[in-house]
Amino acid sequence: MKTMTSVKTLSGSLAQAAGSIMAVMAIGVTLMFVAGHAQSATLHDAAHDMRHATGFPCH
């Protein structure tokens, strides 16, 4: 929630807002890579049906 206030009360420094935006974006992209694209066999098998059903390049 701290990130939220820093982004939304734009009175704070713009750099701070940019920092939390980048952080949230990085979490999202990392999560997406792990769930959707990482090629560990365990991950691949567990996420298999979802990967097919979201159109990720699977195997």
Binding site: V24, M25, A35, D49
Partner: peptide, 30 residues
């Protein structure tokens, strides 16, 4: 097991999308 994993990973991938989307909201708001 297979179907529960599919539910879990589907939720996970949409949470990931949501983070990216909301980061975009943040940039737009800024």
């Amino acid at each position: 097991k297979r179907d529960l994993l599919t539910v879990a990973f589907t939720v996970l991938i949409y949470v990931a999308y949501a983070f990216i989307l909301v980061a975009g909201f943040g940039a737009a708001a800024a």
